[in-house]
């Protein structure tokens, strides 16, 4: 495995890691934005709350495999889009649950203050609800980004657009088990680096902000 790992040229390593990172971050960003949208709907339209819950349950019940197959068929194996969308679809229920829960837990009295100050729904969301939800959202994002990395690798395995997942499948096809292991270890290193260098710091900052 060490020999295989050493045989991977720097260009292949860097481009594969970058593709996986891009797929994960883009998919995660889409999931985060959609979750914030769902959280806003939950906050501003109480009548739509059952729909938000139903959508979340529905998304949770769809397998990553199903998303990967359907989206690869829809966009084609060479398209860079399926890994991003599969990642987004898989991360969405995790982040959405936390975002909605965070909104639900916001102090009702803060909402009274917003009403008395004449805040519109978007103003109250941006000035009170969203900032109050930041620590929960940061914690959810930490696990969401980790999930995004794992899911994007699965989605890459179904296409031919590159990435760590694609390289793992290629090594598998060529019957090079040490290749599969080497790329799996590269993925682990990538996840650790992302968590230690980025997400842990984000959560620490959000937590310190909450305690202040």
């Amino acid at each position: 495995m060490a020999a295989y790992a050493l045989s991977i040229d720097l260009w292949t390593l860097a481009s594969s890691v970058l593709i996986t990172l891009r797929n994960s971050v883009e998919g995660f960003a889409i999931a985060l934005l959609a979750s914030l949208g769902a959280a806003y709907l939950y906050f501003s339209r109480p009548g739509l709350r059952p729909m938000v819950y139903a959508l979340n349950t529905m998304l949770q019940s769809v397998s990553v495999l199903a998303w990967a197959i359907v989206l690869t068929m829809a966009f084609g194996v060479l398209s860079p889009i399926p890994p991003v969308l599969v990642t987004a679809a898989a991360c969405l229920p995790v982040i959405m649950s936390s975002a909605v829960e965070a909104v639900r837990a916001v102090d009702e009295r803060l909402m009274d203050v917003m009403k008395m100050l004449g805040a519109s729904k978007p103003q109250a969301f941006l000035n009170a609800v969203l900032p109050a939800s930041v620590p929960s959202l940061a914690a959810a994002s930490r696990s969401g980004l980790g999930l995004a990395l794992r899911i994007s690798v699965v989605a890459e395995a179904f296409g031919s657009s590159g990435g760590v997942g694609y390289m793992m499948v290629r090594a598998y096809s060529l019957v090079v088990p040490e290749g599969v292991m080497a790329w799996a270890l590269i993925l682990v290193a990538l996840m650790l680096a992302m968590d230690l260098l980025v997400m842990r710091r984000v959560v620490e900052v959000a937590e310190a902000w909450r305690l202040s």
């Binding site: 009274d112 203050v113 100050l117 805040a119 900032p131």
Partner: peptide, 21 residues
């Protein structure tokens, strides 16, 4: 309870209603 927004300064808290308007 004072219910000031902890992520805003006293100035930002006081001007909030005017901003909304």
């Amino acid at each position: 309870e004072d219910l000031l927004l902890p992520w805003k300064t006293i100035y930002e808290n006081v001007e909030l209603g005017l901003r909304f308007r």
